[in-house]
Design a binder for these strands. Structure first.
Lengths: 160, 160
DNA sequence: CAAAGTTTGTTGACACATCAACTTAAAATA
DNA sequence: TATTTTAAGTTGATGTGTCAACAAACTTTG
């Protein structure tokens, strides 16, 4: 959970919780997360964070911390710590960039490649299920609505 | 972020990230959270967790830990810790139930009432904005889609 | 070239989330 | 009533999310 409940129960007309978008997003997010975590556990031993990082490293030439951050929006600090532990666990290999000594190039290891491949079918199947679960037209509405809501999250004042 | 990226970059046909429902939910959730946190900070000093708890306590006769948990889905452990600190901070008053000595009845204090009232207008206005941002028909589709997705999060195997 | 600014990554602090083991009190039932 | 089961809260461990301060390496500009 997270956001969910920021309405005044005592004055707002009675909008059932289930129709509050913020609440639904919160719940859904939590459930999606725990599902992904569960699937990963059942198909190897990757954590969700490790998985996310490997997805990018696996698909990116010369992956670096900042590329991962840019593509996933994951916080830099979290990436730094997780990558560090993954290097220690032989899930990533690191090599400082030949000319730019700030950057660190990250690559899969045999170990992480194997674990990634093991988790991949289930994760891919899940994703494809989500893709197919909603009729295209519903999916479009959904994405449009997300765009609208996304834009509203920038505001911190709501004029009358 | 959280769930976002659990697709195989290297094989799935190229669904842009922005059309991945899991990714959008994740991002939206994060942004909603940080918006609510920001608004609360600008209108008092309540944390999001404190706010969530006060919303329930404010609207519930004889609120208890378990009622809060039932209504919000917040983890019992978190409620326990947060309530404890709120009692220490004079944001909640506690009284063991007269007959059932397990339960603790929680009530607003003058201090939390004031803080709650201070944050309320902005939070309520926000919620009402979200309510009005989507045309009813879009909103309905959204809720339906959430129901569909919700149901899918129970699965951990996705047959072909 | 040197000062100033930017980018890359690290670290610390703290709030939030999840899970499991545990205590105490009440309820069920044998 | 004694035993067992269930409910209410607590606590510890561990992972995730966010933010801010920071050091080091590079870039820009005067």
């Amino acid at each position: 959970m997270e956001d969910s409940i920021e309405y005044s129960a005592q004055a707002q007309p009675d909008v059932p919780l289930n129709r509050l978008v913020t609440y639904r997003i919160a719940r859904l997010h939590a459930k999606l997360n725990s599902q992904a975590t569960r699937i990963l556990k059942e198909n190897g031993k990757l954590t969700l964070m490790q998985w996310r990082i490997l997805v990018i490293v696996n698909a990116t030439e010369d992956a670096t911390h900042s590329k991962i951050a840019a593509k996933t929006q994951i916080d830099g600090g979290q990436i730094s710590r997780c990558v560090k532990s993954m290097i220690a666990a032989d899930l990533l290999s690191a090599e400082v960039h030949p000319t730019d000594h700030r950057q660190v190039n990250l690559r899969m290891t045999p170990k992480s490649t194997a674990m990634f491949q093991q988790a991949l079918p289930a994760m891919r199947k899940r994703q494809s299920y989500f893709g197919k679960a909603l009729p295209k037209e519903q999916h479009d509405v959904l994405i449009t609505a997300f765009d609208t809501l996304d834009a509203m999250t920038e505001l911190s004042v709501f004029p009358d």
